[in-house]
């Protein structure tokens, strides 16, 4: 079994209220070195068997059309990770 990871981030020019709230809360914990936080989403698509180019293309398609909202989000990564045996 393999997994395809899809990372989705709010578009850089779009306001990210969650990231904004987090970056302002960090100093309360004494964490002051980070000047910005943006919060995205990670999806893991499970595949039984090999990830073929075709499957990867399908994942990209799904990422663009369904996992993200192209109006406000970008798909920043679609990649394969092989499951490490536990």
């Amino acid at each position: 079994m393999a997994r395809i990871v899809v990372d989705v981030m709010p578009k850089p020019e779009i306001l990210d209220p969650q990231g904004k709230a987090i970056v302002r809360a960090l100093p309360h914990q004494g964490v002051t070195v980070f000047s910005g936080v943006r919060q995205g989403k990670r999806f893991e698509l499970e595949v039984d068997g090999e990830v073929t180019d075709e499957i990867l293309a399908t994942a990209r398609e799904a990422a663009e059309t369904m996992l993200s909202n192209p109006v406000i989000e970008d798909v920043v990564n679609v990649s394969v990770i092989d499951d490490v045996e536990a």
Binding site: P10, K11, P12, E13
Partner: peptide, 8 residues
């Protein structure tokens, strides 16, 4: 890259 969409 100016978003037409406003995010609340």
């Amino acid at each position: 890259k100016r978003p037409a969409v406003q995010v609340g």
